[in-house]
Design a protein around this nucleic acid. Structure first.
Length: 137
DNA sequence: GCCAACGTTGGC
DNA sequence: GCCAACGTTGGC
């Protein structure tokens, strides 16, 4: 079981859209590095959902429910991939980018060191820390 | 709105 | 294969 972080602009497709759809297709990734990570996803993996743009924060956890499959929205569907995600839990207290940057434990996250990557692995240690933070008042 | 960082494209 | 030009992402 692996942990991931996926980024999205909530104006385009965000947490609320995922909740509304129940199971949503995470598509549109057009970056090779992100694509390569996505291809490693397995059903049962957990993906943190991060909103970029006006607010910059991890808003909740979703579960990967399919293996990666060709992205139907791509012109070359053999090149790009999608997975389906199911919203698991909205975080009571979203963890924002400023917090992550300010904490030495977390400041090595790819979210900080490679700010343009839209799909990235998250270590279990980081995941646990982030989850604990989201449960604090 | 600006700009830094990064990725891609295309001329040579 | 190099690199300048350009486009995009995303934080500020």
């Amino acid at each position: 079981m692996n942990y991931w972080l996926v980024k999205t602009e909530p104006e385009t497709y965000g947490w609320d859209d995922l909740v509304r759809e129940g199971e949503g297709r995470w598509d549109g990734v057009r970056n090779y590095q992100a694509r390569n990570f996505m291809k490693e996803m397995m059903p049962g993996d957990i993906a943190l959902v991060y909103h970029s743009g006006k607010t910059r924060e991890i808003v909740g956890e979703a579960k990967v429910v399919t293996t990666p499959y060709p992205d139907p929205t791509a012109e070359e569907p053999d090149t790009w991939f999608a997975v389906n995600l199911k919203a698991l839990k909205r975080w009571e207290n979203p963890v924002d980018l400023a917090f992550i940057k300010a904490h030495p434990e977390l400041s090595g996250m790819k979210l900080v060191t490679n700010s343009r990557l839209s799909v990235m692995p998250v270590s279990e240690a980081h995941f646990i820390l982030l989850q604990q933070q989201s449960q604090k008042k």
